[in-house]
């Protein structure tokens, strides 16, 4: 492979002040965007801040805005996103920037809590396990959304979150939908009350930015549509308080 350089523009600064700074990074075979950012920090400027952990697409901590789109950088190959050798790497939009490429994710995860995204057990340690068949319809629906890694890419790519700060967003609602379909869960009424309304599932415009960007190929829009159906029937039955 002939030696060539990538021109990489990286956001330096916090959310209030900063600018894109250009770096030259040697092009490598099978190079990921995370490799590029790591090279800059280790070889050019050790003050660059960014977040990563597993490097294999499991932990969801290395999401950044790459050439204008939110992406998981550890699984994003430079050859796919920058065929012309130019790369722009910024922090995820919508979230507040801590420094450089690191963003504050508290709002994002607090919304999971607000959406009752936690399991409400109905049994004790003395009870038997629930026998749930993998082919069970509800289990299949839950399984379709369960592989979320909490990277925040869908949230960052959602225009409704961008203009409506209180909107719970696709990740939290997708999590709620997996629990709505978990027959072992005992917190359904509280959950439906938490996710209904104009800051919840009814705010979704079904634009599918979340589906477009999700690195795990999940479909949060379909999950939110499911929540709209379930809440509508609950409202008819008077199940919403």
């Amino acid at each position: 492979m002939r030696e060539e350089n990538l021109i990489v523009s990286v956001w330096r600064g916090d959310g209030e002040q900063g600018e894109y700074v250009d770096y030259r990074v040697p092009r490598e075979e099978s190079q990921t965007v995370l490799d590029v950012v790591t090279y800059i920090q280790r070889k050019i400027d050790p003050t660059l801040s960014y977040r990563f952990s597993c490097r294999v697409g499991m932990c969801g901590s290395c999401a950044m805005t790459v050439n204008g789109k939110p992406r998981w950088t550890c699984r994003t190959h430079v050859s796919k996103v920058a065929p012309d050798g130019k790369l722009s790497v910024g922090p995820l939009r919508i979230m507040n920037v801590v420094k450089d490429l690191s963003v504050e994710m508290s709002d994002f995860f607090e919304k999971w809590v607000r959406a009752e995204g936690r399991f409400h057990p109905t049994k004790t340690r003395y009870d038997d396990f629930d026998a749930i068949k993998p082919a069970d319809n509800k289990r299949k629906i839950a399984s379709a959304g369960i592989e979320c890694i909490g990277c925040g890419i869908c949230y960052s790519g959602c225009d409704v979150v961008a203009w409506k700060a209180e909107y719970l967003g696709p990740a939290a609602l997708n999590r709620a939908w997996t629990l709505v379909n978990d027959v072992r869960d005992g917190g359904q009424i509280a959950r439906l009350n938490a996710i209904a309304g104009d800051a919840g599932c009814h705010a979704c415009h079904s634009q599918q930015g979340c589906v477009e960007n999700c690195p795990k190929h999940l479909n949060p829009t379909a999950s939110i549509a499911g929540l709209k159906r379930v809440t509508a029937f609950a409202a008819l039955k008077g199940g919403l308080k």
């Binding site: 309304g197 009814h202 709209k228 509508a232 409202a235 919403l240």
Partner: peptide, 18 residues
């Protein structure tokens, strides 16, 4: 959001779908 408003939102959604 007040409790009754949640009911209204969900019912309006259903009315719009139907």
């Amino acid at each position: 959001m007040s409790a009754s408003k949640i009911q209204v939102e969900a019912r309006l959604w259903l009315a719009q779908r139907l």
